[in-house]
Design a protein around this nucleic acid. Structure first.
Lengths: 223, 223
DNA sequence: CCTTGTGAAGGGGTTCACAGCA
DNA sequence: TGCTGTGAACCCCTTCACAAGG
């Protein structure tokens, strides 16, 4: 679950394309782990449920990475995608909200290997949470603005209760944060140059029940 | 983050529309909490960053819920949407994978109020996890098939390691599960009649860095 | 022969704009 | 006057199909 719903990009590359690139990367990593050096758009598509044409078209926005008659060199393509997405550097992230969810996020081991370093966390009651978790210092909310600068944060992860989320996000935006991963159950309002991705399992479930309902009971014939 | 990427629905209503309905519901709930009884498509759109035209068009797939010149009765619209999405009943969900992430999911208090009842959980090492958490019994993986039937499960939540996810999902599909909320970092392969939503914070982050990169360094002029 | 890269065609969702009605 | 509901226009992404090339 995610995405900013929005209109968006007047400029060149469709956002949907950008959002597929990480998917391709992951499939390529898997292939690499299996010792596969070359893959066709067909082969890659099979792993993802995407058509070969779409994959080729997506790549074509950025350059020519394949070899006719052969396909794509997995290692090379992977490094190109990594470069395109800006994943060759380390990004500093900050967590806001160290409740039950926030602690789970700090503990999640999946971010670091991908270059996302959790640098600092904030909470209204920092002393309740402990002084630090996994070497991540936990500061009070009043220190937010200063610390974002001091720690050179580029990405914020929001895990505060719904009612506090928008004010927190407003503060982040004021601090020039341009990328927000939002776990709070609301649709944040941000300026067009700020990117938001929402993690919302409840929304995800609620959109599936529509289809489940169709199955079990089309019910009585109306009228 | 979520969604099954896919092609999809030949039939009537676009999947994007279905996925927006829960969003509308949440905004309406908020409005209701604020004591607002009537809202226009314009007003509702302001809360969500959606155009009024889109909202009206979305609703028009299902009926006529508004009153010209006034707008929509919040309470009525909400109950209609709830009905459309099949949220008036309780859905039984099962969790597969009771590791760090799985325990956080069991502990998450956001599902139950929306009618999603966590009924049972499974793990390869059930005894390690405790016999039950929050009254949710934890069974071994070998009991999966039987228990899904016994507990009348309609929705599965997958929180196992990536390498085990596809096999687990295959088993769920064989058991006639048609809705899966997947937390494992992969794109599951399922038949067209099975609905999957992926929760994947890393993908979400990786698609935002593309835009961050543009900001900081368009870098040197290539060639 | 096989697979890429891509212009063109196609499809589907969004936006427009207005008739209809309270 | 105000706002809904909706056919039509528009736009953008996806798919097609083929020239190009190893």
């Amino acid at each position: 679950m995610a995405r900013t719903m929005g209109k968006a990009n007047s400029s060149a590359i469709p956002e949907v394309v950008i959002m597929r690139l990480p998917l391709y990367m992951r499939a390529l990593s898997t292939l690499l782990g299996q010792g596969i050096d070359v893959i066709s758009s067909q082969g890659l598509g099979d792993h993802l449920g995407v058509t070969p044409a779409q994959i080729r078209k997506d790549f074509s926005y950025f350059g020519r990475f394949g070899k006719q008659g052969r396909g794509y060199n997995v290692r090379y393509l992977l490094s190109e995608l990594r470069q395109i997405l800006g994943l060759e550097r380390e990004w500093h992230t900050a967590l806001v909200g160290v409740g039950r969810l926030g602690r789970a996020i700090i503990g999640y081991p999946g971010f670091a290997p991908e270059g996302f370093k959790m640098v600092v966390a904030f909470d209204v009651a920092p002393e309740q949470a402990a002084e630090s978790i996994r070497d991540v210092p936990i500061l009070g909310m009043s220190e937010l603005e200063q610390a974002l600068v001091r720690y050179n944060i580029q990405i914020a992860i929001v895990a505060v209760p719904a009612v506090e989320a928008q004010p927190v996000i407003d503060r982040l935006v004021k601090c020039n944060i341009k990328a927000i991963l939002n776990y709070a159950p609301l649709q944040p309002q941000v300026p067009p140059d700020v990117h938001v991705r929402n993690i919302d399992p409840v929304l995800a479930l609620q959109s599936m029940t529509y289809y489940l309902k169709q199955l079990s009971g089309p019910a009585s014939t109306p009228s």
